[in-house]
Design a protein around this nucleic acid. Sequence first.
DNA 1: TTGTAGGCGTTATCAG
DNA 2: CTGATAACGCCTACAA
Lengths: 337, 337
Amino acid sequence: MPTITDVAREAGVGIGTVSRVINGSPLVAEATRERVLAVIRRLGYQPSPIARAFGRRRTDKLEVLVPLFAQSFVLEILQGIEDALADTDYALIIRTVDGGDDRDRVFQDCCVRGQADGVLVVWMAPTEDFVGRMSAESFPAVLLNSEHPRLWSVGTDHDAAALAATMHCVDVGHRDIALVDRREDPFNADSSGICLRGYRQALRNAGLSSRRDYERLADLGARGGAAALQALLALRDPPTAIVAGSESQAIGVLAAARALGRRVPEDLSIVGYNDTEITRDLGLTTVRVPLRELGRRAAETLVAVLAEPAADPVARYVSSELVVRATCGPPPASTRA
Amino acid sequence: MPTITDVAREAGVGIGTVSRVINGSPLVAEATRERVLAVIRRLGYQPSPIARAFGRRRTDKLEVLVPLFAQSFVLEILQGIEDALADTDYALIIRTVDGGDDRDRVFQDCCVRGQADGVLVVWMAPTEDFVGRMSAESFPAVLLNSEHPRLWSVGTDHDAAALAATMHCVDVGHRDIALVDRREDPFNADSSGICLRGYRQALRNAGLSSRRDYERLADLGARGGAAALQALLALRDPPTAIVAGSESQAIGVLAAARALGRRVPEDLSIVGYNDTEITRDLGLTTVRVPLRELGRRAAETLVAVLAEPAADPVARYVSSELVVRATCGPPPASTRA
DNA sequence: TTGTAGGCGTTATCAG
DNA sequence: CTGATAACGCCTACAA
């Protein structure tokens, strides 16, 4: 492996000049630059990223913390992140988080001594300790789909999305609308649901009263959705429409409904949250959270903070849209007002 | 940020000693070690990973190249990789590949000048150029689910899996079995299918003749599967069972079958390839490729190569198993032998 | 416009 | 066992 010294010697210049050429400095005579570039090509020289990181005290790497429960979202978010990073030369160091203990460990270990220049936390509430460290060192950190007053964040407006989903049910005629919600912080069993506020607001807007037994907080995954639906249908006056707080739960609700002999949407309407290839193929009416856009915006934000570390953290939102497909229709005649 | 020098000064020792303590060298007196450790704790000292990488010419990082088309597999494979790496202190640098051009770019840019200590290529055929570079520098590289004579690899035995899937159809009574296959190299339209050999072998074993019009090479994704099924059902003598070469294609086949009014498995049987939460929820009879295990084995292999760079590359295989669920049953009576 | 020297934080190699 | 000291490859003054 040739080093900068080899290039300098070969080109008959000092290493400073080679360095300037590499880094596109204007302070090099055109003739010199070309001579150096020729040598670089001839020797197949490539600057060592590590030496470079060492010298200028930055790594051109960003850490990304992703929880594995967000399986179906992650890749699309990553695509967005890479979109935003395409013109930069940041690379990604990924740390996956595989459950509660792992989470603490990862939040503790990450971003140590200039491993990376910034960090992006995907879909997880950060630990307080982490927030402390980041803001103490004023280390650039952006949260994606979670929020903290001392850190930058890019999120979806869950309230607006849940409101839209619920209002859609109202609009097609439902009055008995239940919620199968996802926890805000999947690692914290005490956290409340993500859609609850928007759901309740929609009911209020429609002049409907909300019922506690229609508000289910279920585990992520199809299992959670299926179980919640069973409980709901076992009620004396079961709902005619379900708003799900996640894609996987919606899939579970849908599968369970069919397994129980309910036709969708004739007997039961379902609105999901989040849209993927699967939900599309299933014809699910759902809230489309623009995951790729979310990733892109978050990465852009991080890059901006990296470039201009001054300002105070800001929380930004990208808005979702309702994708109307085939799983939400008018309620059965017998239950209509 | 305290450096090793601060610690040395504070502890009244030389930096060499501190270095030895950090790296667990036995060549330190117990008393000295404890004094140094105390100072390290007091100062909250953490060695700089970059300086360290620079000094010892290794980074403790592994590059992982993942194609985005493998969306549903990736996270599970990553879990396996992290399983294997849990006791080591390797971190992962992820590079996602978003299509053909991107692929060449990534294979070209990756593993430059000791960015990482090794590389893991997930589910992609490497470029020849890449193979050349890796073996020229004898840089540790492991392919996961692809193969090359000059590199280490861990794969699934597609032949055996496809054979098992097809034999299962035979076993329950089918004679007209079609294949909706996935390309071997998704970036190369000319590559052949992944299941073709096993499929044909199974037919041979069963004394059935194979028909070209039953062998469809379809694009990945539900769309591809659906289109292929339509073509197959349009044949004069359509098959009674479908072996799909991927999970997403199987889902598409299933959805299309139902959309066309075929009951599954009464009218049409389907065996998928690969198993996820979704296929489980859909009750799909499928080949279970142990993705997590695959990731684990690949990472273990890489770590082993890293530790012992001597040996010649070897191709290893992990075997799949058939998960019998609800989409493959006996053929309709009219078609039975 | 260019070359030179110093520094970045470790590890590794020596004498002691 | 321990402490100096020389790399490691690049960047960034600073001087020319």
